[in-house]
Computed example of a mutant assay.
Amino acid sequence: MAELSPIQPCLWFDHQAREAMEYYVSVFPNSRIDSIEEYPDESLDEHFAGMTGKVLSGRFTLDGVHFTCLDGGPVFRFNESISFVVSCADQAEIDEYWAKLSHDPESEQCGWCKDRFGLSWQIVPANMSELTRRPEQVQVMMQQKKIVIAELENA
């Protein structure tokens, strides 16, 4: 296993950490589940009631980026204040990631989408700063849900 970065995101899931890891590694190339530690048998301690077999600590890698995750119950939920940026080489790559990650049409705006776990992603062209230099381009981007490169280039 590659050396872990000293800083890595930790994702708190209600009870879907294992499902999320499996899904994310299927979406991104060069990805893998590195380890899964489960909660101990709930009979050992009342704090673990209902958590037997759930993910106490999961580690996975998405295209070279290391993540940690856990099943912590419904106390905390994801929101748009944290998102992950996916820099795409071209429109085909944007379309592919959008199709796999966008799950909530009401949350789509300017290349942002939410996946089925409620995590926010920014699916954008790698040259986004070049495509939004002029006010007209920014206006077009603000009207888009999924980024369409040709529309930005033609603005």
Rank of each mutant, 00 (worst) to 15 (best):
F60T: 05
Q109G: 00
H103C: 14
F48R: 08
A99K: 14
K145R: 14
V65D: 00
L11E: 07
R134Q: 13
P74T: 10
D41N: 15
M142T: 12
S57D: 11
S57Y: 08
E80V: 06
S107W: 11
E93D: 13
F76M: 12
I82D: 06
I82L: 13
E22S: 09
E46V: 13
L101I: 03
T52S: 15
A20F: 01
R18I: 01
P29F: 13
N79H: 05
T52H: 11
S81C: 07
P125W: 02
S129A: 12
F76L: 15
L56T: 01
H103S: 15
V27L: 09
E130P: 01
Q8W: 04
Y24L: 09
R134A: 10
R133G: 07
Y39K: 11
H103I: 00
S5K: 14
C10L: 10
G73P: 09
A150V: 05
Y23S: 12
F78R: 04
E136M: 07
V85I: 10
S129V: 06
V148G: 01
L4F: 09
A92G: 15
E151P: 03
S43Y: 03
A126M: 07
P9S: 11
N154D: 12
V65I: 15
E151L: 07
V86C: 06
E46H: 12
F60I: 03
F48V: 12
S129H: 10
F117L: 02
L119V: 15
V86P: 04
Q8G: 09
S120E: 07
F117R: 05
G58S: 08
S120T: 13
E96K: 12
K146P: 01
F78H: 05
L56H: 06
F60R: 11
T52N: 10
L119A: 11
L152K: 02
W12I: 00
S107V: 00
I33W: 00
L152H: 03
M141Y: 05
W112E: 05
A17K: 10
S81L: 07
V86K: 08
M21P: 06
C69H: 03
D95I: 05
Q137P: 11
V138C: 05
L11K: 04
E106W: 02
C88D: 07
Q122W: 11
S5P: 06
L131I: 02
T132E: 07
E153I: 08
E136T: 07
D71I: 13
R59W: 03
E136R: 12
E106M: 14
W12N: 12
Q139A: 15
N30V: 04
E37P: 00
A89L: 11
P6T: 08
C88R: 06
I123Q: 07
C10W: 05
